[in-house]
Nucleic acid binder design. Structure first.
Lengths: 226, 226
DNA sequence: CTAATAGTGTCTATAAGACAATATTCC
DNA sequence: GGAATATTGTCTTATAGACACTATTAG
C-alpha cells in the first residue's frame, strides 16, 4: 500500500455520576498490546471487512467493550502522528464521543470499567487525556446551543433534572425561569401527559421526553439554551 | 497489518469571489488514478515518512496543489467506508477546511484550478460534495461566533469589508451599527493607525488588522458576532 | 453643492436574569 | 401548618436591531 498507517477508533463515553461529567475508562486486557494493564479509552481497529464506516467501528467498540447500543454517538476528531503510540508507529485514531445515562452504563458495565470525573483525571496512556479534553470541549460548546445534555438522562426526565444535566456539563448554575423559557423556544421536549415524578419532600415534577425528531438528531437554537 | 485501509487527506479550500463563498476544485491529472480528468477537491495520501500529523498532510497538499502556506487551516471531519472510492476499497479521508484571501489564491493558482461558488456545485466525484457541504456548514456555524471570516480577507481590511465577508459566509445582511458594536466586544481587531482606504466616491474607511493572538487562533464570543 | 459610503448616536423591541409569588406534595 | 421544591409571573437590565444623523471624500 501507499503507507503504513494503523487506523483505530477511540470512544470517549461520557455520563453523569453525582452530577459530575465523567468518562468511562477500561483496563487494557491484552498482554501483547501497548499500555497493558493501564486504564484508557475503549478503542479498536477499523475492520474493513465488517465496518461500513468509522461510526460503525465506534458502535462496535461500544458494544464489545461496554455492551451498549442505541446511545448518542458522534464523530469527534482525528488524532494522528508517528509518536502517539510508540509501539505501533504512525497511527490515526478517529475519536468519537458518546453520551449515555448512568443507568444504562451501570447495567452494562463489566468489572474492568470505571467512571472518572473529567475534572479528576490522572495521566493516561497515549494522548487519551488530550482526546478527552477535546471531547469535553466539544460537548460543552454544543450543549450551550442544543438539546445534547438530554442524552445524559433516561428517556423520560423532569425539567429540573434536565437543568442539572446542563449545569453539570457547562459547569455553572443557570436561572430556572430563563431556562424554562428557552427550553420552550427550543421546542424539543414534550410532556408525558399525566406522568409526574417526586423526589423527596416537594411538589412532583412533570415528566418530559424528547420529541421524536430529536431523539436521533439534536435540536438547536441560535441564541443558547442556557 | 490489521487492516487494508487507504488513508488520505482532502482539503476544502474556501475563498470569496465577488462576495460569494467559493471552493477550489482541481482537475485530476494522474491517468492511473480514479476520476481522472474530473474536477475534485485537492487531496493526497498520508505519508508516514514525512508527515507528523494529518494537519501536516493537509499543509503539504495545500502547498503541492495550490502553492499556499501560512493560511487558516483546521481539521473538519473524517469520511470513510468501503464504497466512497470504488477503485481503492475501504478508504478514510480526513477532510480539512482552509480559508484564504482571493489575492493569495490568484497569485498561486496554476492552470488546473477553478473556483466555484458553493451554491452552484454540480456533481463531483466520490463524496466530495458531501465533504464541501460539511465544510460550509462548519464555517457558517463557527463564523457566527468568531473572527473566522477575517481569514477570507487580506491581513489588512476595513470594517465594511469584514462585514461583507460575514454576510457572504452567513448568507444574510446584518445591521452595521450592531455589527460594529459586537466587533468591539469581540476585541479581536486593532486599527492600523493613520491608514485609511477609499473605494469609489465615499469617505475613506479606517484600516484594521487582527490582533496578534487572533492571527493563529480564533477570537470567540458567546453571543454571536452578527 | 451632490453622491456615496463611513461611522456614530439614539430609540425601540426583544431577550435574559433576578426574584417574588403561588402550587403541590408529605409529614 | 411547615418544609421542600416545582412552576409561573413580573420587574429590571442587557442586548439587538432600526434608523436617523453626521463626517469625509471626489467631482
Amino acid at each position: 500500500m501507499h503507507n503504513q498507517i494503523t487506523c483505530v477508533v477511540d470512544v470517549v463515553l461520557l455520563t453523569l455520576v453525582d452530577s459530575k461529567l465523567s468518562v468511562a475508562l477500561f483496563q487494557r486486557q491484552n498482554p501483547n498490546e501497548p499500555a497493558h494493564g493501564q486504564w484508557a479509552l475503549p478503542g479498536g481497529f477499523i475492520r474493513d471487512k465488517i465496518d461500513e464506516s468509522v461510526l460503525d467501528t465506534a458502535q462496535r467498540v461500544l458494544m464489545e467493550k461496554a455492551g451498549l447500543e442505541g446511545i448518542y454517538l458522534e464523530q469527534l476528531q482525528s488524532f494522528s502522528g508517528p509518536e502517539r503510540d510508540p509501539d505501533r508507529g504512525w497511527t490515526l485514531s478517529v475519536a468519537h464521543v458518546a453520551l449515555v445515562p448512568l443507568e444504562q452504563v451501570s447495567k452494562a458495565s463489566r468489572g474492568e470499567m470505571k467512571l472518572v470525573s473529567v475534572n479528576a483525571l490522572r495521566s493516561l496512556p497515549f494522548d487519551h487525556k488530550e482526546i478527552i479534553n477535546a471531547a469535553v470541549a466539544r460537548v460543552r460548546t454544543k450543549s450551550a446551543y442544543s438539546s445534547l445534555p438530554a442524552h445524559l438522562l433516561a428517556d423520560e426526565f423532569t425539567i429540573p433534572e434536565l437543568q442539572v444535566a446542563y449545569e453539570a456539563v457547562l459547569g455553572q448554575a443557570y436561572n430556572s425561569s430563563s431556562f424554562r423559557r428557552k427550553l420552550k423556544d427550543l421546542d424539543a421536549i414534550e410532556a408525558v401527559s399525566g406522568q409526574k415524578k417526586q423526589v423527596g419532600l416537594s411538589a412532583p415534577a412533570q415528566i418530559y421526553r424528547l420529541k421524536k425528531p430529536f431523539r436521533n438528531q439534536l435540536a438547536t437554537r441560535s441564541r443558547g439554551v442556557v
